[in-house]
Simulated scan of single mutants.
Amino acid sequence: MSGRPQKHSLTLKGHRTSVSLEAEFWAAFRALARNRNQGINECAAEIDAARGDVGLASAIRLAVLKDLQSRLDRS
């Protein structure tokens, strides 16, 4: 576990933005996008549109957590 956030660029609504997440969250976020048959930018745009007043990085972490919880509930 690295613990230190890593900054990556995403494109939302045609604009580049940077998001800092821990390596483990980046991996889980990429898996979430794959499971939704989406690219990472498309998945981030969907999360961004629904996030309200929460920061994008926090919204991505919460989406990853929600996805994990729902998969655990189904098992």
Rank of each mutant, 00 (worst) to 15 (best):
A31K: 12
A23W: 02
R36V: 00
S2Q: 06
R36Q: 09
R74T: 07
D48S: 13
A27Q: 11
N37G: 14
A57L: 00
L56S: 02
A27R: 06
D48F: 14
Q69Y: 00
K66F: 01
A45Q: 15
D67G: 01
G52H: 10
R16I: 03
L56V: 03
R30I: 12
D67N: 06
A44K: 12
D53N: 12
L56M: 03
E24F: 07
T17C: 15
L56H: 04
L32C: 05
H8A: 08
Q38H: 03
R36D: 08
C43F: 00
T11Q: 14
A57G: 02
A28R: 05
G39T: 08
S20Y: 05
V19G: 03
A31H: 14
A63C: 02
H8T: 12
A44S: 09
A23T: 07
A57M: 00
G55H: 10
I60L: 14
K66P: 00
A50F: 07
A27N: 01
L68S: 09
S2D: 13
A27S: 10
A44V: 06
R51S: 01
L65H: 11
A63P: 04
A23C: 07
R36K: 14
I40A: 04
R74Q: 13
A28F: 03
M1R: 08
L21G: 04
Q6E: 15
R34S: 11
Q6C: 06
S58I: 04
L72F: 10
L65V: 10
S70L: 06
A45E: 15
M1A: 09
E42W: 00
D73A: 14
R30M: 11
S20G: 15
R16Y: 09
R74D: 13
A31R: 15
S70T: 12
Q69L: 05
L21R: 07
A31T: 08
M1S: 11
V64F: 00
A33D: 06
L62K: 14
S75N: 12
G3D: 07
E22L: 06
Q6T: 14
A23R: 08
A49G: 13
L10I: 11
L32G: 05
G14Q: 00
C43T: 10
I47F: 08
V64T: 11
K13Q: 07
L68K: 04
C43R: 04
R36P: 00
G3T: 06
A44G: 03
A57D: 03
L56G: 04
A44N: 08
P5S: 02
I47S: 05
H8W: 09
L68D: 08
A59T: 02
D48T: 04
L68G: 15
N37K: 15
C43H: 01
D53S: 14
